[in-house]
Amino acid sequence: MENRLASATARKNRVSFDQVNKFAGFDDLRRVKEDDVVAFKQTRLAAGRNPSTVANDIAACGTVCK
């Protein structure tokens, strides 16, 4: 049986993916490198985003990029 995400989780993950992709300048998460993630984190925190929001964005992308 295939594991499926709850619709709310899927929507939240899509927003996270979109944030990372927009920052990186491409729409393929497989192309995101560690340096991109570090820069994304620093930029989002410098812009005043809540650290837990930034951590959640990174974690959401990490779960599908393993």
Rank of each mutant, 00 (worst) to 15 (best):
M1W: 12
M1Q: 08
M1G: 12
R4I: 05
R4N: 12
R4C: 06
R4M: 09
R4A: 11
S7Q: 12
S7G: 05
A8R: 12
A10S: 09
A10N: 04
R11M: 04
N13L: 07
R14S: 14
R14N: 08
V15Y: 03
V15D: 11
S16G: 02
S16V: 07
S16R: 06
Q19W: 11
V20T: 00
K22R: 15
K22H: 12
F23N: 00
F23W: 04
F23Y: 13
G25M: 07
F26D: 02
F26K: 03
D27M: 01
D27F: 02
L29H: 05
R30K: 14
R30T: 06
V32Y: 12
K33L: 12
E34S: 11
E34Y: 14
D36E: 06
V37C: 06
V37S: 08
V37M: 14
K41H: 12
Q42G: 05
T43D: 09
R44F: 03
R44K: 14
A47K: 08
G48P: 07
G48F: 09
R49D: 11
N50H: 10
P51K: 02
P51E: 03
S52P: 00
S52W: 03
T53A: 09
T53G: 05
A55N: 13
A55I: 02
N56W: 00
N56E: 03
D57V: 14
I58L: 10
I58Q: 01
A59Q: 10
A60R: 05
A60S: 12
C61I: 15
T63G: 11
V64T: 12
C65K: 13
C65H: 03
K66P: 12
